[in-house]
Structure formats: C-alpha cells, structure tokens
Simulated scan of single mutants.
Amino acid sequence: MYSDKFGRLMLGLCSRKPTSVVRSPAGRSAFSWTSVCKQRTLWLQRSACLEVRQHVLPCQISSARSASQTTVDPDEVKRFQSLASKWWDERGEFAALHSMNDLRVPFIRDNLLNMHRRRQPGKPLAGLKILDVGCGGGLLTEPLGRLGADVLGIDPVADSIGTARLHSSCDPDLCERVRYRACTLEELSAEGEGGEEGAGRFDAIVASEVVEHLADLETFAFCCNHVLKPDGSLFITTINKTNLSYALGIVAAEQLLRIVPSGTHDWEKFISPVDLERLLESNGFSVQSVRGMMYNPVSGSWSWTDSTAINYALHAVKLREEPQPDRAEAEADSPDPEYQAHAAAAHN
C-alpha cells in the first residue's frame, strides 16, 4: 500500500514542477557559497592554495592537500562497512543501484563515444581508462569493463573492495580490464606523475551516488581534475538538495518504505546542480549536460525526466589549460632595453 501511494506521489510531484536543466552560467539564480553542504571554510582554503599553485608542481599541490584534507567521512565508512557483503544482492539494500545501471551505463557510454568517436563492435569503450570513485562492490565498474574500458575501482572500505574482487574473479572476461584498490581519491592523486595511476592518466572518472557521502567536495573536485587527462570526462549522479528530495529520498525511502537502509543519507550533504556546476567550474571543468532522474519504487526502475528536483546525472569535461609562454622566449621577444634607449635617442 505504501509503495503504491509513494509511486503515485513521486510521479505527480516530479512531473508537476520541472526544474530547468543547467548547462551554462546564464540565467542562474543567486548563489550563496556558504550554503553548499557545510563547505563554508573551503573556499578560503582553495584561495590560499591558488596563491602558491603557480610555484608548485601539480603533484606537490595534491600531496599537500591530501595530507591535511580528506574526502572520507568516517561515519560513512562505518555505515558501508556493515553493508559490504550485500552489494550483489539485487533484491537487497542496493537494489535501486542495480536498476540504475539501465540509465547510468548508457549515459556514460554515449557521452564518451561522442567525445572520442570510437567504434569497436562489442567493446565500444576499448582503449579508454576509467576511474570509478567509491566503486563499492563494483556494480558499475563491471559493466564499464564489459564495454571494453580499462577500469580501476577505488573505495576506502576494504571489505567492499574484497567483495568486488571476488565477484569479478568469476568472469574471465574482466580479469585483464577491471582492477580494484582500497584507497581514497586523494591518495591516488598524491601518487603524482611517476605513479602507476598518477596525474593525468584517466580518460574519465565516474562518481555515481558518491558525492552525497563525501566530507570535502572541494578536495574531491580538485583531485578529479588532477588525475584526469585534458578533455577528460567526469560523470556524477547524485541527489538534489530540495524539500522534495528530503521528503522522498529520506523520509519515504528510508523511514517508510525501507528502500535504502535508514541513515544512509544526510540531507545537509546533498548538493543542487547549480551549486555542483559552480564548484566544478572553479576547479577547471565545463559542465556539458545535466539530466533529471526518477526512481519508481513500484516497478523498481529508473527513467529520465525533465525535473532535477530529486536525482540527476551530470557530465563535465576538464578544460585544457592555456599554455604559458616560456620566460626565456618572452624575454627574447621583448625589445632589449639598451636598443630601446638608442632608438629613442635617434628618434629625438
């Protein structure tokens, strides 16, 4: 009875007041940086980092940030530690994530194909390196590997990585393309240029249903930029920060219908598409598209919608840095001061 009522309620509310998709800075409503998910002090830290960035190598910057800041919330780690053995139960706590693959896998695949123009029958993503951040038990890592990509899944919960490795070992087709590591994004970023994964090594990063569990979104965005190649893609699916997302995503889904375990989400950590785009733009990304997503608990399926009021998927691209002229070249191109003095005297 509750499921049927909830399904009708969500369908009605989501279709009644669609939220426009955000693709460009134009037309934004007023933005208050201090309201974004308890990140009130992070902009100042970011500004301090920018002052020294011109004099420090990227890998050194990443190492310094990872030493003092972390994306990991210890409470979230404990929560997912208790669920580590349940990732592949398609009717259990992660049932909604299993069915979400019907949307998020094609969303990632099609946008990458548009970016790279590759076509290989059966393995359309062959040759691409993808990082799956917060991979859990590998629910999204494995499908991307089956599409031909070389995928590294990382997660701070070691037991979840153990579950992912065990499950992928049952499929010989994944052995050479899917790997897992129990580590954080900032640890991977700190490996620098010389590391196996290192800086600028990935064609794409996937963070699906992850950012709403992180302790530091600024560090997350910074490290994503660091490990991505120029023109690399960042894919995020998450929950909007609205009254409707609280009512349906927490009260109904966690407390009434028990679709997800109680306490899984903290509404204060949710972030709107506008705020997330602003965060990514400040870290060298350009948002290409934002699409609304809706879950129907009656059918257990996901569908695309014009409304981003609850869930949404975002695709952003790392911008190429403008090459800075070499100092020696700049000095060579500028007139010699002594020559300028002689030229001025001759003119006079």
Score class of each variant (00 low, 15 high):
Met1Asp: 14
Asp4Phe: 11
Lys5Glu: 14
Phe6His: 09
Gly7Tyr: 12
Met10Arg: 15
Cys14Tyr: 10
Cys14Glu: 12
Lys17Gln: 14
Ser20Gly: 15
Ser20Asp: 10
Val22Asn: 07
Ser29Lys: 13
Phe31Ile: 10
Ser32Thr: 08
Trp33Ile: 12
Ser35Met: 07
Arg46Val: 11
Ala48Ile: 13
Glu51Thr: 14
Arg53Gln: 15
Gln54Met: 14
Ser63Leu: 15
Gln69Glu: 11
Ser82His: 01
Ser85Ile: 01
Lys86Val: 01
Asp89Leu: 01
Phe94Gly: 00
Ala95Thr: 06
Ser99Val: 02
Arg104Gln: 10
Pro106Phe: 07
Asp110Ser: 04
His116Gly: 01
Leu125Arg: 01
Ala126Lys: 13
Gly127Pro: 12
Lys129Val: 08
Ile130Ser: 08
Gly137Lys: 05
Arg146Phe: 13
Leu147Cys: 10
Val151Leu: 07
Leu152Pro: 08
Ile154Val: 08
Ala158Val: 13
Ala158Asp: 09
Ile161Glu: 06
Thr163Trp: 01
Ser168Ile: 03
Ser169Asn: 08
Ser169His: 04
Cys170Glu: 14
Pro172Tyr: 07
Pro172Met: 07
Glu176Phe: 14
Arg177His: 14
Leu188Phe: 04
Gly192Leu: 08
Ala199Lys: 10
Ala199Pro: 09
Ala199Val: 15
Gly200Asn: 15
Asp203Arg: 08
Val206His: 01
Val211Glu: 06
Glu212Pro: 00
Leu217Ala: 05
Leu217Asn: 01
Glu218Met: 11
Phe222Asn: 12
Cys223Ile: 06
His226Ile: 04
Val227Lys: 01
Lys229Asp: 05
Ser233Gly: 00
Ile236Leu: 06
Thr237His: 01
Asn240Arg: 02
Asn240Ser: 09
Asn240Gln: 08
Asn240Lys: 02
Asn243Trp: 15
Leu248Glu: 10
Ala252Ile: 09
Ala252His: 10
Ala253Cys: 11
Gln255Val: 08
Val260Trp: 09
Val260His: 10
Gly263Trp: 02
Gly263Asp: 04
Thr264Arg: 07
His265Met: 01
Asp266Lys: 12
Phe270Gln: 02
Val274Phe: 04
Leu279Cys: 05
Leu280Glu: 02
Glu281Asp: 05
Gln288Pro: 04
Gln288Met: 09
Ser289Met: 10
Met293Gly: 07
Ser301Trp: 00
Val317Lys: 08
Leu319Gly: 06
Arg320Asp: 04
Arg320Pro: 03
Pro325Ser: 06
Asp333Phe: 04
Asp333Ser: 02
Pro335Gly: 00
Ala344Asp: 11
Ala344Tyr: 12
